[in-house]
Amino acid sequence: MGTNLVKKEALLKVEDLSIRFKTGKNNFVNAVSQVNFTINKGETLALVGESGCGKSVTSLSIMRLISNSVGNIDGKIIFNDIDFNQLSEKKMRSIRGKDVSMIFQEPMTSLNPVHRIGRQISEVLKLHTDASGDELKKQTVDILKKVGIPRPEKIISEYPHQLSGGMRQRIMIAMAMACNPSLLIADEPTTALDVTIQAQILDLMNDLKTNYETAILLITHDLGVVAEMADRVMVMYYGQIVEEAHVKTIYKNPQHPYTIGLLNSIPSLEDEQDNLQPIEGNVPNIGEITKGCPFFSRCTQAHSKCFERNPPLIKTNNEHSVRCWLYIHEEALA
């Protein structure tokens, strides 16, 4: 919060990112197309969307974790004036975990089951700092303390299966935060956790953000989590950004019919609703729609133009972008 006060300085710029996956010898599907966004220093950007909209693939491609043999990645990923796509694998490796790090959704499967916790965390420090021996151990314990792990001296010699889901996710965060990265990519960090544990983890992430000025790219489908964590929100549908705005704007004045539909779909804890207003139909599979706006078939306000051409992403005001013909029309009149 409070980004308006701080001078905005871009940390990561993603320009024209498109990701195509090979599905056959000469067949491709566009998992992500023409994605542009910027994350400023110390800011939390939430990437929201339903399953299959391309949000996780976007995050993986930032870290260059998608191999060329499965997909083609076009576009620029510029982090602190360095283009990731131009770097050698060795250089890239020195950045991963140090300047940019990542937390995955499944704390159960993203830790190595056959190594002790201490070893898994100290590995990050070994790779990126000069620490060794007792110093390394001390730093490992310090990091565990920082993420609120009780009895860290004991935990370092335990195995992942001995810990609960919430603890494992803390360990993942500890690994990600070990070198004080300037960007943390969190891919559904609390989806697998219970609400009371989720509250602990979100609190922890917010603490780390304020204390170390880490920028966070938060990928989630939970609009409650977004409202609590994010400064800005980007909504994705079918591999495209359909709306982008400040978090308050998104909830108060959503413009894209999909965003409006998503917000109407969630039951509220505060007010009484008789009936929810769901979005009709299903989330389309990637590759299913070839023409027009991908949301066309589920949209309540669709007209003939939507069927013919996919609208471009336009700015409706300085900090609000939307990809929908409804607003382009208005623009032209004004």
Binding site: T196, G224, A227, Y251
Partner: peptide, 20 residues
């Protein structure tokens, strides 16, 4: 603990449980 999908709702005093 439940996050409220409204960024302008009053920040409630969250009771954060310790432990699992």
């Amino acid at each position: 603990s439940v996050p409220v999908p409204n960024p302008e709702s009053e920040k409630k005093d969250r009771i954060i449980l310790t432990g699992d």
